[in-house]
């Protein structure tokens, strides 16, 4: 069993980031409106190749924040769609904070926010219900592998809490028919086993609750003064 949580923050420097994008993120060039297309193209690449770069996408929103004439609703939606796949990281909210106040009333953004709320609140069946609507599916249509990415988000939440869970329950969370072959292959691809209508999840750092006693950890720095006294003897 590994001691590390299953949750991982969105990487600060994803491997897919090019030097050009890196220099945009680090320097004052990030404020130059001419550079927005470089970042938008990079977002296109993320959508196509199932990659994700939060910092670069926030840089787009920053440019939009300062230059309303650049704003492209379509790009904002794609950024938010990608942020949904990063839950439970706070990325989606970090994007919302950068949007103009009036954007929160936008129909598509409201829809995506509903989806976000469902995922954050573990209301997975509700998520799929809302998502099932064609207009909603359309919003995420450019993000390759979106549905599977969401399933991974959901499954991570489940594997953090459960050691075993009934097939019926899990398949409903993942929006599969329990008899479906796809369900079985998805479960197996994530290293889980199905035995007698129950999915067994190996122990990990998050689903293995053990009572512990937290002992204090005295650091050497705390002792420097005391050690110093020995010099005076």
């Amino acid at each position: 069993m590994s001691s590390e949580s299953l949750l991982k923050p969105s990487p600060l420097i994803p491997v897919t980031r090019t030097d050009i994008v890196q220099s945009l993120i680090d320097g004052v060039d990030r404020y130059n409106p001419d550079n927005v297309s470089i970042l938008e193209d990079y977002l296109g690449q993320q959508l196509q190749n199932e990659e994700y770069d939060l910092m670069a996408n926030l840089a787009i929103l920053k440019l939009y924040q300062f230059n309303p004439h650049l704003v492209n609703e379509h790009v904002i939606i794609n950024i938010l769609v990608k942020a949904l796949t990063a839950i439970p990281n706070p990325d989606f909210n970090l994007c919302l904070y950068l949007l103009h106040e009036s954007s929160l009333a936008d129909e598509s953004i409201t829809k995506l926010t509903e989806l976000q709320q469902c995922l954050e609140q573990a209301r997975f069946r509700e998520f799929w219900e809302i998502y099932g609507d064609e207009s909603c599916k359309e919003l995420a249509s450019e993000a390759t592998g979106f549905e599977d990415a969401i399933r991974k988000v959901i499954l991570t939440t489940i594997t953090m809490a459960y050691q075993s869970i009934s097939v019926n329950l899990l398949s409903s969370y993942l929006n599969y028919n329990p008899a479906d072959k796809e369900f079985e292959s998805f479960i197996q691809s994530r290293g889980l086993e199905i035995k007698e209508e129950v999915v067994h999840i190996p122990k990990n750092a998050d689903n293995d609750a053990k009572p512990t006693v937290i002992r204090e950890n005295i650091k050497f720095e705390q002792l420097t003064k005391v050690v110093g006294y020995s010099n005076e003897l």
Partner: peptide, 19 residues
């Protein structure tokens, strides 16, 4: 902290030892 085994919740509390 807790974990779920199907319909059962197993709960564990960590305590802070004396400092």
């Amino acid at each position: 902290d807790f974990c779920l085994k199907q319909d059962m919740i197993h709960i564990a509390e960590s305590k802070v030892g004396r400092r």
